[in-house]
Design a protein around this nucleic acid. Sequence first.
RNA 1: GCGCUUGUAGCUCAGCUGGAUAGAGCAACGGACUUCUAAUCCGUAGGUCACAAGUUCGAAUCUUGUCAGGCGCACCA
Length: 550
Amino acid sequence: MDKRWVLLSKFGYFSSGTLGFGGQNASNITTIKGRKIMIRNWLAKTVHDRLSKEFDGEFPSVDIGVPKTESYGDFSSNIAFGLAKLLRKSPAVIAAEFGSKLDIPGVNVSWVGGFINFKLDDSFLFEKWIHSHSAEIPPVTVPEKMLLEFVSANPTGPLHIGHGRWAVIGSCLANILKAVGHDVQSEFYVNDAGNQIALFRASVAAVASGQPIPDNGYHGDYVRMLATTTASVDDPVEAMRQSQSDVLESMGTTFDQWFSEKTLHESGKVHEVIQDLRRAGVVYDSEGAVWFRTTDFGDDKDRVLIKSDGALTYFAVDIAYHADKLARCGNRLINIWGADHHGYVARVRAAVAVLNQGATIDFDIIIGQLVSLLKDGEPVRMSKRTGELVTLDEIIEEIGRDATRFFLAMKSADSTIEFDLALAKKQSSDNPVYYVQYAHARICSIFRKLGIHEALPVELISINSAERDVISWGLQFSDEVHNAADHLAPHRIVHYLVELARRVHTMYEQSPILKSGDGLKHQRLHILNQARQILSAGLSLLGISAPEEM
RNA sequence: GCGCUUGUAGCUCAGCUGGAUAGAGCAACGGACUUCUAAUCCGUAGGUCACAAGUUCGAAUCUUGUCAGGCGCACCA
């Protein structure tokens, strides 16, 4: 909860709902700094001020929401329900009493049942629109420094669609968090040490020298490809990592750091961190091995750090990696992992709990559900070792970068998704990405026809419902971006954009520009100009192009 | 067996920090191109929000249980 608001309120129990004034949503805070007054917050504050005049004592929080049914207005409040208990009256009566006292210039107040609804006058709304730069996102007041780790595929084979999903979610998230003002570093952890790496190197070397591939080694065409050039025979791991990097870059995902696991071994960091844990009293020796008592932190069983043969476990190395990240990340550490690693969460959280002594760093693990790949409805089994693969670069080539990104970004990370190759290829022209892009292109086309780039000075003539719909939705853009950032949920941006595009298309049909008189023309151009900027900004957050022509 | 996660329209999915009549795209059906790009728009139809209890003014949303799918339960990485 915003501390400033605690001071403002004379009662201690404001809800932390993001819709409310004073909630945890960082975007709310911007009202006070006066950077930009978002309408919803302004309204919440206005209503709150009136309430505090009416009631000396305590009263519940003011939550301003957006009604699902547009006929109810632009905003609504449920304060009457909260007041009902205090006042021992029905919500409907309270809503009528209080609603009738709410005299806010430019805002039409009505009440239905216990709800108090607000509808902004067209002129008021348009005024807000003109003076806002809706595509701009006001920054949070307390920017955080954070480190976001994602993909981190083993450099022993090509990336597949699942990696593509983490790449898209991760890069969108990085964009979104940066957009609201945070300092975000993105990182790929390269598992370039250990048994699998040795086996991979041996496999490539074997093929290069005409020897049989070792048992449990890596097969597949990509191994044979690597064996054909001297550079990749010398260092197949780096060659593989580079090709992963190339694929990711081709789909618009880049990283600030590629962190090598090998460096942790070489620097002795792993043994150092085990000593740290030992000093913290969570390590014990048993059966010739060194254990971390992770059960103290809710794990199912204790975990081995150093095996009885003296070798380090992957977990031990990963702790060292997390220790390193904690030292670098600033305020917050975010990992994106596939659901196949969720069993790993408890032990890593245990380690971070010990290492993050002051508990000053927030630690989030986003568990993304897996992508099951289908071909004509039949599941495609994939194995890196046997070389049965449908690779990410094949998919990008077939479906296209923008459509692939949009498809992967539009679903929340915790739903499993099915990716049917044949269907995706067949339906790629139905991908909603084109719907959004087309809305952008259509607006550009109008400006192109007029030979101008910006909207002209304007005053309100009269707006129709289609135009109003674009404005009221467009004004919520920065709210949505903050929302997506707060929830680490990039898919919200996708759904926001689809809805904005829908409203733009409707307006396009209903509000002719070129053949309208100057007044209407300029007014409509102004609306579309900002819509275009929002579409462009939103698509950019998703790493998707906003074409001017299609 | 234990844990995490999911179950919403024929299909793919939003909505889940509790609010009003549960939404979109695709598919289906009927309309709109002599018009700023029809990759569009308008309309119709489509629902036991898996099931059952509970919490309360109010539950798709929170709690518990049941059923079903996915994933995980190593001195592997």
